[in-house]
């Protein structure tokens, strides 16, 4: 039970980050039907830029409070990510809007490689450690531990998602986004400049990605030019799990995927313990005896497998995702 609750808390934390990133995928897909594979790299750049700003401020003569330093890093990262996403859409995707769908998709993969290599040039190929500006204090939650950092991540992600829902459901821009997602031609007839709406989707997604980038970096304590790749794929999986194009789906899919991964990592050792098997070779029996009956075929380093296992299952059994609409709506 302890493991369960503990992994649930860890999963919720990680899942909140996935959800923020997944929203970026799903918003862009919902409006122009493009899977922006470079979105994970925007997360990475968000982490890297905030790290650089934080390091620079730490090195300054007058010591600033940690909160101010982190906020400054976050704001600069958000600005840079928004600018990159805006430029990316305008330069790489807009000229291909009427091209066959494969062309922008491959361009997105190309953008991903370009951004990765730019980061490699700017920040180098080493793992960068994030300074411990926040010393996480663990709190007891029903017998499991949850740090204040984890709480902050979950609460902040929740607030951002609520804010996004408000924008999409209640504002003029949000209404224009929903209309454009349904029928861009008719949206144009209403007086909506769909280029503005599409840019907005990219830019809002990038802002959320920047926040997510800082979150994963503080959580794991490291950053790396390649970190966006796997994170992006997982967030994409989360978006597909929830039903790509659907905002609530991205949030649900993100949190669920985080929890599945955490629980999977927490239990895979026990589940794949081979000591209970009846026919074991002598050497294995010896190993079991030596390690108090705990010899697992897979350890928690297999954590990443679960996300893609989920992706495969969703694609086979429910390609429209948990909350995805049936395709017939366009008829």
């Amino acid at each position: 039970m302890d493991t369960f609750l503990q992994q649930l808390i860890n999963g919720l934390t990680l899942g909140s980050v996935y959800a923020l990133v997944a929203l970026g995928y799903t918003m862009v897909y919902g409006i122009i039907g493009l899977i922006n594979f470079a979105h994970g790299e925007v997360v990475m750049i968000g982490a890297m830029v905030s790290l650089s700003v934080i390091m620079a401020l730490l090195g300054a003569h007058a010591p600033l409070p940690s909160v101010v330093i982190i906020l400054a890093g976050l704001l600069v990262a958000i600005t840079v990510c928004m600018a990159i996403a805006y430029a990316m859409e305008k330069i790489a995707y807009r000229p291909l809007r009427k091209a066959p769908r494969l062309a922008p998709l491959i361009t997105a993969i190309g953008m991903s490689i370009i951004l990765q290599n730019l980061a490699l040039i700017v920040w180098g190929r080493n793992y960068l450690t994030f300074p411990t500006l926040i010393q996480p204090t663990p709190y007891n939650v029903l017998g499991a531990s949850m740090t204040d950092l984890q709480m902050l991540i979950v609460v902040l992600a929740g607030l951002l998602m609520a804010g996004l829902v408000f924008v999409v459901q209640r504002t003029r821009l949000g209404m224009a986004m929903r209309a454009t997602a349904q029928n861009p031609q008719v949206a144009g007839l209403m007086g909506i400049d769909i280029n503005v709406v599409i840019s907005a989707a990219f830019v809002i997604g990038a802002a959320l990605a920047a926040v997510a980038g800082l979150m994963v970096m503080t959580y794991y304590g490291i950053a790396h030019y390649y970190m966006g790749f796997l994170l992006g794929l997982k967030a994409f999986t989360a978006a597909v799990l929830g039903g790509i194009g659907n905002l609530a789906g991205a949030m649900l899919g993100g949190v669920l995927l985080g929890i599945i991964e955490a629980l999977g990592a927490g239990y895979i050792g026990d589940v794949s313990n081979i000591c209970g098997f009846p026919f074991l070779s002598d050497s294995l029996q010896q190993q079991c005896a030596a390690s108090e009956g705990q010899v697992s075929m897979f350890g928690s380093n297999y954590q990443d497998v679960f996300a893609f296992f989920v992706l495969i299952l969703v694609l086979i059994f429910r390609p429209s995702g948990l909350l995805g609409e049936r395709v017939s709506e366009r008829a």
Binding site: M175, R178, A179, N183, Q185, V186, L189
Partner: peptide, 11 residues
């Protein structure tokens, strides 16, 4: 008013 009406079905 476009052909096929073009209302936003989900709105």
């Amino acid at each position: 008013v476009p052909e096929g009406r073009g209302v936003f079905g989900a709105l």
